[in-house]
Design a binder for these strands. Structure first.
Lengths: 211, 211, 211, 211
DNA sequence: CATGAATGAGACTTCATTCAT
DNA sequence: GATGAATGAAGTCTCATTCAT
């Protein structure tokens, strides 16, 4: 029995250390770029040896994947808190802001996403991990669909079924984030996240009343 | 005289080979990912030695940049052909399709964009090249703004000035492309480019008439 | 406690390996020329992979610089032991011999010197390292000046202040080393280091008494 | 007959173009460093193709060697003009200045010297070229020996035979050039060529009279 | 558990040299 | 004679991963 308790403690500790490593990797990604997220750099910043990282993650691939999933889950739970809002315009704005946080803080996850999913062959992501990723994204999309199915929103979306609003919302929020928050377009051309989102909401939700 | 003709032929041939290399690089990018666009790989696929690539491009940066600018220019000229269309909904659809081609054929240029612009320090893109890139993007954005300033479109966009419609259009088209055309979201969740664009156009342009 | 001992051992071992690599690099330099002191060659001769060298030296520049400074320091400490000699002729001879050892054993440091200092731009030596080098050379020159300031020596050098004797001594000893010890002039024309130095000492120190 | 004249003209023209290429190589060496003397750079500056250089020089080695020998010959003929000077101190000063010119203008010939002579094996310099180099240096040394055999000079050099003065003069002049004219020691420590040479001449030639 | 030395492959890049035209 | 495209070897350096300790 006692041994078991110890074992569980050990597992918890291990899980803890995993999270710490993950967080350090995120900091590096956030402060620099995905190319700088090397095992060496992570180990260095964590005060560990390079080899030690492999006690917690089987490969770099797995580490990156863990980062991605962890953050998608954070995004999901943030979205969940929006369920109580009634006004669809406000929901959309809140969703956009949640995504904005996800994008700003862990901004370069699209890179990871792509990096992990576009590859084929031996370096590619394992099937099991692929599923976990798929499920996590799925739950976010499902949430969006639920939001889109609200009574209020139908007044503005007409005949478009909720299922079809999902890729639209997802696309727009991601597109706006990427375009307005990236160094190039964003800073160079003076694009502003809030402005674009607000204008979009105006366009969709307020216009009918105006005319 | 004859010599001059020969000279011109040589220059043309060289330009040709440059384009072939560029196309090969594009194929690699398209079939794999930006990390796989290495000088080695390009040379291999071109049946050349690695050194030979440097006869046509002074550095890897220049190769990537050439790809990017070439395709942005193609996009721009495709957009220019849309000037005669009157119906703003049709323009938007046509623009989206143009971008879709750009994105589908040479898919991951956003990666290059970021890859080239996010870096700082010695590996970063040179200032002169940065400007060329900036200008090319600028001319596309300017075109969008001109489209957004049309009389017809004002009926649907209300008080939003054309300048502010630019990032919105750009964001949405890019976002939809990325989300629906990428392997992951697109194929995995059954998102469809045309459907999303059409729904969006419905939302913005047809709704007023319904209510 | 034991752990600490182990740690210290490791550090010592690492330092040891660093010295071994340095020595191997020196051997290559001695047997060939500075162009042959490549990371590849050093690694090969050390039975290591090229990457392994970078565990001990951050760059090739650092390796070369370490070689140079190490040997300048050896020269300096050898010179320091000459402080007790009274007879200036003997001091000069001893200094020349010390330099000869430095030059013979690690022969082509002048090359490194130039290699490191003549370059400008990114490949050039870092400012911090430049200073360390400057200081090391400075301490040697300072020693020579102190020697040149001795009472005895004034009888032979007349009104030339000690500070001006420094470049002269440095030049002559280096020149004689290079000319007599190099493969070409030295071996080809039968020049002999000791003979030249002795003659020079005769010329300066003994002549007065003769006339 | 006529054909022969043409042939000679051709040979002359070829020799001419050889000299031009040589001069261009020298300019590059002078303005930059030996590493920048590449066949490509020379061809570029000469307005030729890389391949064309090989019509005039069998290899890069030969080109460098030609540069070296050409300049040693210039030095030699400059020295020959000093034969009429009587005062040995003045001769020494003039010789030093001649060497200084050789060193300043084509300063990095010592590198070439070393580069060419220290190598062994297939890349090494051919035996025939080695001899030409040897002879050219030999004629300079012979000149120095003749100078050192003058009656006037014996008063200052006592019993040292002229043959043994040769390496001393050669060493000192080269050493002083290298130490005072190099970026590092020279500029960094404020060494001055003329000062050192003058002091040295004082030391050897004028001191006896002072005491 | 943890270390960190070492590997090996691969990244970009340069350059002397050759050869078909 | 001359061109310049192409090669192939070599250069510096990075990094995921392994393994003896």
């Amino acid at each position: 029995m006692t041994v078991k308790v110890f074992d569980e403690l050990k597992i918890k500790e291990k899980e803890n250390r995993k999270l710490i490593i993950l967080q350090i990797a995120e900091e590096i990604l956030h402060e620099n770029c995905i190319e700088d997220v090397t095992i060496r750099n992570v180990a260095l910043k964590a005060g560990l040896s390079t080899g030690a990282i492999y006690m917690y993650f089987a490969s770099k691939e797995e580490l990156l994947l863990s980062m991605l999933i962890k953050n998608l889950k954070t995004l999901h739970s943030e979205l969940e808190t929006l369920k109580e809002i009634d006004d669809p315009a406000k929901v959309l704005k809140a969703m956009a802001l949640a995504y904005r946080n996800y994008f700003i803080n862990y901004g370069k996850y699209i890179d990871i996403f792509r990096h992990l999913t576009d590859k084929e062959g031996p370096e590619a992501i394992g099937q099991d991990h692929k599923e976990e990723l798929h499920n996590t994204v799925g739950s976010i999309l499902k949430f969006i669909e639920e939001m889109a199915a609200g009574e209020e929103i139908k007044k503005y979306t007409g005949g478009i079924p909720p299922g079809r609003l999902v890729p639209m919302v997802w696309s727009i929020v991601q597109g706006v984030s990427q375009v307005t928050l990236s160094t190039t377009s964003g800073k160079a051309f003076g694009f502003d996240f809030d402005q674009v989102i607000d204008d979009f909401i105006d366009l969709v939700f307020l216009k009918p009343k105006k005319i």
